[in-house]
């Protein structure tokens, strides 16, 4: 693994996205549109104040999951991955390159979404905005690493898209957005407590309300980071140089 190859890969991924303006627009605009819609639906109630931060956690996660799983699958299917792995390319370079590129993208996406949620929709962030970005990036990296993992188990684009409901929806449903996790039946509560997105939602809510200290947020970020490392490790094992 070398910084040169990692950076070259990150640069290449960003260049690919730059050559695809429609994807850029969708990446940046869609989250704001949906946040605006939710804010309008729950206008003049307290609901948006409580689920708004959670929505900020959802977008980087879902979008990065989709983008990573599909682009990695594309690399596997187009033969470019095989070409790279026949070259002096470390598997770590490949994964870290993707992680870097999408992490950067997540920062931009989150900036737009947070700006829109606070300035236009009136969402109040009591805690540190810097901390909010830390959580959002961790969240995006979580999506990236799980997407990478999902791509290893899919042979077609159709299959990889099916992993979205399979891996992402349960985390949304059990994450405490719709129903606080404490009110879930025992088993589901335990499952929800172990799923990484729950902690991203908790952390962003804590930053927004300012009810908890930074230690609480960092602990959640640490928990997400453990998931990321785990998924990247398993994902890199699936990037085999030799295939049958």
């Amino acid at each position: 693994m070398t910084p040169r190859r990692t950076l070259a890969t990150a640069g290449r991924v960003l260049l690919q996205i730059r050559n695809d303006p429609r994807t850029i627009v969708l990446l940046l605009v869609v989250p704001s549109l949906l946040i605006g819609l939710v804010a309008w639906i729950f206008d003049e109630t307290e609901v948006f104040a409580s689920i708004g931060p959670a929505m900020l956690a959802l977008f980087p996660f879902i979008v990065m999951f989709l983008v990573t799983s599909i682009s990695t699958l594309r690399e596997r299917r187009s033969g470019t991955l095989e070409r790279l792995l026949s070259m002096p390319m470390g598997r770590g370079d490949f994964i870290l390159g993707y992680t870097l590129a999408f992490g950067l993208l997540a920062v931009v996406q989150t900036s737009v979404a947070v700006a829109y949620a606070t300035l236009v929709c009136g969402l109040e962030i009591e805690g540190s905005v810097g901390l909010l970005f830390v959580v959002a990036v961790a969240d995006a990296l979580l999506g990236t690493s799980l997407g990478l993992l999902a791509s290893a188990f899919a042979r077609t684009e159709f299959q990889v898209v099916q992993f979205m409901p399979g891996l992402v929806f349960p985390q949304i449903l059990l994450g405490g957005i719709f129903l606080p996790r404490g009110q879930l039946p025992g088993v589901l509560e335990v499952i929800g407590d172990w799923l990484p997105l729950s902690h991203a939602i908790d952390a962003l809510t804590a930053v927004a309300t300012g009810d908890e200290d930074a230690g609480y947020v960092w602990l959640r970020v640490f928990f997400i980071a453990c998931w990321v490392v785990g998924a990247v490790t398993v994902g890199s094992l699936t990037l085999r140089r030799r295939t049958s």
């Binding site: 070259a8 050559n19 070409r83 002096p88 370079d93």
Partner: peptide
């Protein structure tokens, strides 16, 4: 086995850096 959404030169530059 090249990146369709990159230019010819960008493709080769990337592979050159990897190599």
């Amino acid at each position: 086995s090249i990146y369709e959404d990159l230019s010819v030169r960008a493709n080769l530059r990337y592979f050159a850096r990897v190599r």
